[in-house]
Simulated scan of single mutants.
Amino acid sequence: MYKLIIIILLSVPFNTLADTVNTDDELSTALEKIRIKNDIPSMSVAIITSGEITYIKGFGFLDKKQEKATNEESLFRIASITKLFTAQAIMQLVEKNKIELNEKVGRYLSSFKESSITIKQLLTHSSGISDTIKPVGFEKQRTVGSYLGLVKQSLPENNEGKDFEYSDTNFNVLGAIISSVSGDSYEKYIYNNILKPSNMKESGYFDSESAYFSETEPTYKGKLLDKADRRPYDLSFNPSEGLISNVHDLSRWLTLTLAGDSSLLNAQTYKDMLKPQVKTSWGEIYMGLGWQLYNHSNDIIARHPGSIRGYKSLILTYPDSKNALILLTNSSNTPRWEIAKLITNTLKQNAEW
């Protein structure tokens, strides 16, 4: 094995190795400066270049005493990045002819039989459903069924969908549809059909039997949030924000997604998910099927940020070149777009991307 490693190293031009090391060092130094400047206790970053994981690192510490360093396997609440997993699950069921995108939700959930909302409208946040129902602590024993009952009561009388309105509720309803159609709980379906094929061994959802919790505690400007101010773990919100993961696991899933790997979806389905469907209220950004899409300097960018109290995260991808970055933090004041720009500019300047 030692000889093999030496042979591999000798087969790579010295300048290439040196440039890679210099880029990594430059990037790590800059990222650490941003972390310290913004009082972010814990941060993890992964970078994918041409479909391969080329950089993965943790910054800061998991504990107040700064004895346990953050690494690529440190677990965070990834918040709304979870929606990408829910969207992939829906598209898997579309491929199996168990769901039709233009079919009304009432076909799959009896409590919505009088609604004209479609699956595609849920995926693109154009259903007209607002986030009037908030998550509650698990100790209150609210079931998914009772949550759906509250959502039904909150629907406007003439609910036929409308222009874009970002809403967690859309994806929570999609999670219930996944469970109804597959016969499994939402969490079990995602584990068997996405997490397991992606080899995401450390990732999972909070539920009544398997309690996954973030190793990183939520903060704002370096201070821990009081218990009363923290976002509750709510089973009915798992499809929109519940996945607990790390950059190591997410990078495995994302490399498969960027490659159009058949273990998750058919090649055409990946492409379909990246077609603009609905213009958002965020400038020239469009909703695909789960993904948020826009163009920049002739590049197509597909992204999804995540944000709940005390956590901010981001997945930003360039599907054509199969480049991507993953950012997880336990701070509400993380400058995600500044960090994304730093990473992108550094890699482009060093001809990495």
Score class of each variant (00 low, 15 high):
K3F: 09
K3Y: 07
L4K: 13
I5Q: 13
I5F: 14
I8D: 15
V12R: 12
T16V: 15
N22T: 13
E26Y: 12
L27A: 02
S28D: 11
R35N: 00
K37A: 00
D39T: 05
D39Y: 08
A46I: 03
I47K: 14
Y55E: 03
Y55C: 07
G58W: 01
F59V: 04
L62V: 05
L75D: 02
I78E: 00
T82R: 01
A87E: 02
K98G: 06
I99M: 09
G106E: 11
L109M: 11
L109C: 12
S115P: 11
S116E: 10
I117K: 10
I117A: 08
I119Y: 07
Q121H: 03
G128K: 06
S130Y: 09
D131Y: 03
T132P: 11
T143M: 08
Y147F: 15
Y147A: 11
L148R: 10
E160W: 14
G161T: 06
G161D: 10
D163K: 10
F171E: 01
F171P: 02
G175T: 03
I177E: 09
S179T: 12
S180N: 10
Y186D: 01
E187F: 05
I190R: 01
S198A: 04
S198P: 03
N199M: 07
S203I: 01
Y205V: 01
F206H: 06
F206I: 04
S210M: 09
S210V: 10
G222M: 02
L224A: 04
R230W: 03
S236V: 12
F237D: 11
N238M: 11
S240C: 07
D249L: 06
D249E: 02
S251C: 09
T255P: 07
T269M: 09
T280R: 13
L289V: 02
N295R: 14
H296L: 14
D299K: 15
D299N: 15
R303E: 15
S307M: 05
I308M: 01
Y318T: 15
P319M: 01
S321H: 12
A324F: 11
L327S: 04
T329N: 03
T334F: 05
E338A: 07
E338R: 09
E338K: 03
A340P: 10
T344P: 14
K348I: 08
